[in-house]
């Protein structure tokens, strides 16, 4: 079993500047559920002063959303996301990995399984291109929101979108199998030569980590000069955590939305909605606690659309707002930009 990379773990000086940025610390006000506290736990695991089967170690490695909001406020430059991957690599082995996560990982573990997910869905599909640029279809996004890839291609017809491309491996990387996660990203990079454009902020961050920042463009980074439809609507945004905190992309989607309607900045736009990849499925109650405050805010903002840039956030917010019978529609930014949302849909 691999240990932690010493340089990553040593970087933290326990100043505590991360505490106010952490959604789970905000919920609990408990040091143990803060980034600094979790790093203290990782160190205890590394030094052997806590055993790997300690219940609290197990619980905290799962309770963390992995949103990486702590990284943006860390003056010491701690790469918390990388540490969390190493932590779960150690702790989420065998039966300790939640069953639902194991099932999801299995479902995307090979290109044919990913293809199967989208088999009867009308997602974009074209022949591969020898030099790109390519559109990444995603694994669950192609099944849950096939209209997003169609919108992306309407916006950018030059994007090739072959169905046989596989999954980027972010799910594996975040759930205890970072080696496989990196391998999957590398394989996807070989299948899709040239620039890879993605409609999923989470995938963008993982792919960029493995393939290099230059190879990967999230759709709002890629879309700059297009004619955009004026919707006349009030639109807010939910950032994708890894897109914002990992890649530093947050101005770009706002700039696009401002051109399409009256942009409304939600106070918590930059903080996690509780979807957090598979978190909403593994820890539905905690996920709902994180989401609730945000839903109040969205309902109070008097907006027509809530734009998202990641399928996990899409599903989380759509379900949350539906439960509240809200009239706010959750749409992917690409759908708005491609004019795929009809006024009657409002």
């Amino acid at each position: 079993m691999n240990g932690f990379t010493p340089e990553l773990l040593d970087r933290c000086i326990s100043c505590g500047f991360c505490l106010p940025a952490c959604p789970t610390y905000a919920l609990t006000k408990d040091e143990t559920s803060s980034p600094r506290g979790r790093i203290t736990l990782m160190r205890a695991l590394e030094e052997g002063t806590l055993p790997g089967n300690d219940l609290r170690l197990q619980e905290e490695s799962s309770f963390c959303l992995g949103c990486r909001a702590c990284e943006t406020v860390c003056p010491a430059g701690v790469q918390y996301g990388a540490l969390l991957e190493e932590w779960r690599d150690r702790q989420w082995q065998g039966t300790r990995r939640p069953l639902i996560v194991w099932l999801l990982m299995s479902a995307v573990n090979s290109p044919w399984r990913v293809r199967l997910l989208g088999l009867f869905r009308r997602h974009a599909r074209t022949r591969p291109s020898p030099s790109g640029p390519h559109l990444m279809l995603g694994c669950f996004e192609r099944a849950l929101y096939p209209e997003v890839s169609r919108a992306a291609r309407r916006l950018h017809p030059e994007l090739a979108a072959p169905a046989a491309q596989g999954c980027c491996g972010a799910l594996h990387a975040h759930n205890g199998d970072s080696a496989r996660g990196r391998q999957m990203a590398a394989e996807l990079g070989e299948r899709l030569p040239g620039t890879i454009v993605t409609t999923s902020g989470g995938c963008a961050a993982h792919l960029a980590d493995v393939l290099g920042r230059d190879r990967v463009k999230e759709i709002s980074e890629y879309s700059t000069g297009e004619d955009l439809p004026e919707t006349g609507a009030r639109i807010a945004l939910q950032d994708s955590c890894h897109l914002r905190n990992g890649l530093g992309v947050w101005r770009e989607p706002r700039a696009l939305l401002e051109r399409m309607g009256e942009y409304v900045e939600l106070p918590s736009a930059g903080s996690c909605c509780g979807a957090a990849g598979s978190y909403a499925l593994v820890r539905p109650r905690d996920s709902a606690r994180i989401l609730d405050a945000k839903l109040d805010e969205i309902e109070a903002a008097g907006i027509d659309y809530l734009a998202v840039v990641n399928p996990g956030c899409h599903r989380q917010l759509e379900q949350g707002l539906r439960r509240r019978k809200s009239s706010v529609r959750v749409v992917h930014l690409a759908e708005l930009a491609a004019g795929a949302v009809r006024p009657a849909d409002r």
Binding site: E31, T32, S34, R36, G37, R38, T40, L41, A44, T49, L50, D54, L55, R56, L57, E60
Partner: peptide, 8 residues
């Protein structure tokens, strides 16, 4: 428990 107090 050990893990519960370690961060403190």
């Amino acid at each position: 428990a050990d893990g519960d107090v370690a961060a403190y």
